[in-house]
Computed example of a mutant assay.
Amino acid sequence: METVLLVIHIMIAIVLVGVVLLQRSEGGALGIGGGGGGGGAMSSRGAANLLTRTTAVLAASFMLTSILLAIVSGTHSEPTSILDVPATSTDAPESTAPATPAAPAEPSAPLSE
């Protein structure tokens, strides 16, 4: 659930950035889809209204997914760090008797004299 919500959130953020960059700025410097006269199916006023509404819907969706991600991520109760987990001993207890030394192995090649 959290992964799906995160992917949707990222997609909304990318589309929101694109829509904001498409809007005509007050100075007209970054406006890609707005200037010029006639010829288009939409007037510049209609395109501005559409982009403004799209920005508002995307911004509301972005805020909603942000809140949902905060709620979903707060429901995890398991520790997230190995330092939070108490140490457990899985090894068998060592014997108190000393280990017997192994017999020396025979050399595989004769030693030079």
Rank of each mutant, 00 (worst) to 15 (best):
L83M: 04
M63L: 15
I32W: 00
P107I: 11
G27N: 06
A47Y: 06
T54M: 12
A48V: 02
V7Q: 06
G74D: 08
V72K: 13
G39H: 07
E26L: 15
T54A: 14
E94F: 06
G40S: 14
T90R: 13
S108L: 11
S89V: 09
T90C: 09
T80L: 15
I8G: 05
S66L: 03
L64I: 12
S108V: 08
A105I: 01
P79R: 06
G35M: 10
R45Y: 01
A92W: 14
M42T: 02
L111S: 13
G35S: 13
V57A: 10
S108Q: 07
T75F: 11
I10Y: 03
G18M: 06
P110F: 02
V72D: 14
M11E: 15
G38Y: 00
S112M: 07
R24W: 02
R45K: 00
S66E: 01
P93E: 14
A103V: 10
P86V: 07
A87M: 12
L69I: 11
M11Q: 15
A70F: 04
A97V: 12
S77D: 13
A105W: 00
T75L: 13
G46K: 14
A41F: 00
I67F: 05
G31E: 02
V15L: 10
L21R: 09
D84C: 08
G46E: 15
V72P: 03
P86W: 05
T88E: 15
A87D: 12
N49D: 03
I71H: 03
S89N: 13
G34I: 08
L83N: 09
P110E: 07
V4F: 13
A92P: 14
M1Y: 00
M1W: 00
S89D: 13
G18D: 08
A99W: 03
G28Q: 01
V57H: 00
T54W: 02
I71K: 06
A87W: 11
V72C: 08
P79V: 09
V7Y: 01
P79G: 07
E78P: 01
S66F: 00
T65Y: 06
A60D: 05
S44I: 03
I10A: 09
G37H: 08
G28H: 01
V57I: 09
L111Q: 11
V19M: 01
L22G: 02
A102E: 10
A70I: 04
S108C: 04
G27H: 02
M11F: 15
E26W: 13
T3M: 10
L69H: 01
L30Q: 00
V19L: 05
G38R: 01
S81E: 08
M1V: 09
T96H: 11
L50Y: 03
E2Q: 09
S77N: 12
A87N: 12
V20D: 04
T96P: 04
I32Y: 00
S43H: 00
S61E: 09
V85G: 06
A47H: 05
I12L: 06
E26P: 10
L6Q: 05
